[in-house]
């Protein structure tokens, strides 16, 4: 009888304990809160939301400033299918990876004569032809 009585509430009690502990210590509540924020944003700013989802090239502003500049320079020079990156840009994994994926299908090729570099590096390439200079990056032609 005792066991029966205990079994009578065992499932519910265990379930409640698991749910409460899990909801308190997992990310489930955070997820609901974040989903609610996104949903509110989507419903109140529907037009802006619709615009960024259906706008070509939207969302690139998450890229670092250097990569945005490189993208803009490449956009102005459609003839450049392959480009090179200075050692400093290559050795910075974040900038290198963001550049490679951010400007694809323009491809990084180490032998290309079109070299992107950080503007601080310009003195090292003093004799080379400067094609474009931006705020943070520049494009030089090295033959």
């Amino acid at each position: 009888m005792k066991l029966e009585a205990r079994r009578l509430h065992l499932g519910s009690s265990a379930g409640i304990v698991c749910c409460v502990v899990f909801l308190l210590f997992s990310n489930a509540i955070n997820t609901l809160a974040e989903l609610k924020i996104h949903f509110n944003m989507g419903s109140t700013k529907l037009r802006a939301f619709d615009r960024h989802v259906f706008l070509p090239n939207s969302g690139v502003d998450v890229l670092p400033a250097e990569v945005l500049e490189i993208r803009a320079i490449l956009y102005e020079h459609p003839e450049i299918a392959e480009f090179n990156l200075s050692k400093r840009l290559q050795n910075d994994p974040y900038l290198y990876q963001r550049t490679v994926e951010g400007v694809w299908p323009r491809v990084f090729v180490a032998s290309s004569a079109f070299l992107f570099l950080i503007t601080d590096e310009l003195p090292e390439y003093a004799g080379k032809k400067l094609i474009t200079r931006g705020e943070k990056t520049a494009l030089v032609f090295i033959d």
């Binding site: 379930g15 990310n27 997820t31």
Partner: peptide, 15 residues
């Protein structure tokens, strides 16, 4: 409660 637990884990706890 078992179902509440399951649903809170998948997909909600995956954040």
């Amino acid at each position: 409660w078992s179902f509440v637990f399951l649903l809170s884990a998948f997909p909600f706890a995956l954040h």
